[in-house]
Design a protein around this nucleic acid. Structure first.
Lengths: 192, 192
DNA sequence: ACTTTTGTACTGACCGGTCAGTGCAAAGAT
DNA sequence: ATCTTTGCACTGACCGGTCAGTACAAAAGT
């Protein structure tokens, strides 16, 4: 069947199940069954349950980071920020389960994968930080901006709003949510 | 000893252990031992491990909601917003792992906790939304602000930054993080 | 041309440890 | 007298991880 195809089938199954019930409550047997694969195959490919989770995070975060980077590339700094926010929204819209998994599991304390999870999150947030840094360098944002914290803030803000959107107002358009977020980011909180 | 006293001892022990190691990694035997109580007593009082956690969640949510409400009460709208953000930061700083647990369960898509967890999020975000609504009513924020989405954004922003703070920059002071967040909220992203 | 070997991907029955939950008789508390 | 707690042995389901073996294709040997 090919190693890649199998790995992706397992990934997809694992993402769905973990987003539903959490990592601890999801058994390897369930994942294998949902993926249409033998239990041994999971261990053959990933070594352990923790290994599967770790690989899964890396896989998803790489795709997310790539989407963000693509959105930013070749744009003027402030346009890039807007595009990155849009790309994050779109990604979550398309991969809702993964987003839930990300927000729920990467914030768990303890465990061996904590460090990996942290690095991964730094990678995704890092793209936002780069965009902010470029904007500061271009003089489009105030020079004393704490780009690290601001990047976390923007990333978390978009993530939370996107999941609220999908859960509570699925009918709303992406563009509408995007516009509200950009308003908040541009400091229009207090009035025009 | 009295039913109430026992329940509270078990409760306190469970909270401590969960704050240390997380939900799945905590066994009933550990909780009983830490509480200085027989294992059977836990089941006598709470029926099951799930029952114990359910009670625990309610306890934590009450404390968070109360902290946010207390912070807001008796303050002018914009001061209240600042105080609520500070209270959320402080709560996460003091009950970090417990906050991780609450948040993790909040974003699950299935399982038994989903409904309770949904209420938790609505209740916590609800306090922020109330504060924003008051501020709009007082003319301190623009009239057409989407307070629901903005409340989600603020809450998620604070949450992400707080957990990044605890994980990546634990040496930083609460006041410093608070100030950066309030700067972002006040729209100082683009310059003074 | 043909066997044989080697490497890779996968399978599923099985094992051993863990842990929620039980049962019960005796002791304490109110 | 009744409710509550204790201590401890016990159960049994569950689950991560293992392992011997299958399938099959592409080299390597003859």
């Amino acid at each position: 069947m090919g190693r890649n195809a199998t790995r992706e089938k397992v990934f997809a199954a694992a993402i769905e199940l973990i987003a539903e019930s959490g990592l601890a409550a999801t058994t390897v047997d369930q994942i294998a069954e949902r993926a249409g694969v033998a239990k041994g195959t999971v261990f053959y490919n990933f070594g352990s349950k923790a290994g599967l989770f770790s690989a899964l995070l890396e896989y998803g975060v790489d795709r997310l980071a790539a989407a963000l980077r693509d959105a930013a590339s070749g744009r003027a700094p402030l346009d890039a920020l807007e595009a990155v926010v849009g790309a994050e929204l779109a990604f979550i819209g398309e991969h809702e389960s993964f987003a839930r998994l990300l927000i729920a599991e990467t914030w768990r304390s303890g465990g061996d994968w904590q460090r990996a999870a942290r690095l991964i999150r730094e990678r995704a947030i890092g793209v936002v930080a780069d965009v902010l840094r470029d904007a500061v360098a271009a003089g489009d944002l105030r020079a004393d901006l704490d780009t690290g914290t601001a990047a976390s803030a923007v990333f978390g803000m978009v993530l939370t709003v996107a999941l609220d959107w999908r859960t509570l107002q699925p009918g709303r358009s992406l563009g509408d949510v995007h516009a509200t977020l950009m308003d908040l980011l541009r400091g229009r909180l207090t009035g025009p």
